[in-house]
Design a protein around this nucleic acid. Structure first.
Lengths: 191, 191
DNA sequence: GTCTATACAGTGATAGAC
DNA sequence: GTCTATCACTGTATAGAC
């Protein structure tokens, strides 16, 4: 039972993703997740505020990284250049061992409405943080919001490709840069 | 208490918004909402799938209207022209008596995380439906997604202004057109 | 500071009666 | 369509063990 074992958080995340993949999200209880991690339900809720959040831990780190990188970008950088630099800073932290986790994560989220909902909120908060960071640089609305949206959109697209086992295995950074360039080209041709 | 009265749905929506405004969302139970509407908890759940949904009823109508209007737009219309036509079709249905409801709704949503979450999901689905309708017209990605995002963004901005009691009372249609034009101008100046 | 035991309010589902 | 009743599960709170 080893209640003194370290890495309780990691064990919970791993147990949750395993169970959700095997049985589905709805059919899995928090009690089961804690059991498989060798912990109790109470302990689960000490680490995560609710059942959904176990799959989205670490999102705050990305939000912070994005905002910091935008703030640190050259004062002469245009809004889109600042966003591109921020995307680089975040995507560089996604090492290849996280790819297998992402590949199992995305189908689970896609298959459950509660999880899509949480995912939508996380995306919104990411975009808001990026928008705020751009506004701090003096970028006015609605340009700040648009530039942020472009960045998050590029990241989402690239993350899906990166996690796809059928895809060619470029780095997330390379995929994101490419998606960002495609979006900029589409923008110019929009009307 | 007249359990056979008609308009159960409307009574439930009204009771819910009243109670959420008075006591807050968390402090209100579904039982209380049903009580105030002269119904029971079970009946509430026959009308709405969960506690949050009572504030988002009718969203499906807007989604359908948007998609139909995009499909009905002139074959020669550009993507952004089709989106503009779709926005007109939807905003025209927001008569002025719905403004007071919206004015009370938005602060309640903004003040609760669960409701912001549901709102984010609804926004996502609206954008997806609009994107799909554009793709049906032959607009390729990522242009379709971008054009749809622009439309939803204009609507969100305008809806907030329309619902604001402190604002000047233009129609939602006029506000949305203006927001859409501002976004297009910001786009052109982005880099 | 981390984990556990227990009790509890509320959501949302379900079955059966009117 | 509505009601009563009951149920599993989520999420909170508390008190205590290591």
């Amino acid at each position: 039972m080893a209640r003194w074992e370290p890495n309780a958080r990691e064990r919970l995340v791993s147990a949750a993703l395993d169970l959700f993949t095997e049985q589905g999200y709805d059919a899995t209880t928090v009690h089961e997740i804690a059991d498989r991690a060798g912990l109790t339900k109470t302990t689960y809720f000490r680490h995560f505020p609710d059942k959904r959040e176990v799959l989205f831990a670490g999102q705050e780190t990305h939000t912070r990284l994005l905002a910091e990188a935008v703030a640190a970008a050259s004062p002469t950088a245009t809004p889109l250049e600042a966003v591109r630099a921020a995307l680089d800073a975040v995507t560089d932290t996604f090492t290849d061992d996280r790819r297998a986790f992402a590949a199992r994560l995305l189908p689970v989220i896609a298959g459950n409405s509660e999880l899509r909902e949480r995912s939508a909120l996380k995306r919104l908060k990411l975009a808001e943080a990026l928008t705020d960071a751009l506004r701090e640089r003096g970028v006015a609305e609605p340009a700040a919001g648009l530039a942020a949206e472009l960045g998050v959109r590029a990241f989402d697209r690239a993350f899906g490709q990166w996690a796809d086992p059928a895809g060619r295995h470029h780095s997330l950074t390379a995929l994101t840069r490419h998606a960002f360039d495609e979006l900029r080209a589409a923008l110019a041709a929009l009307d």
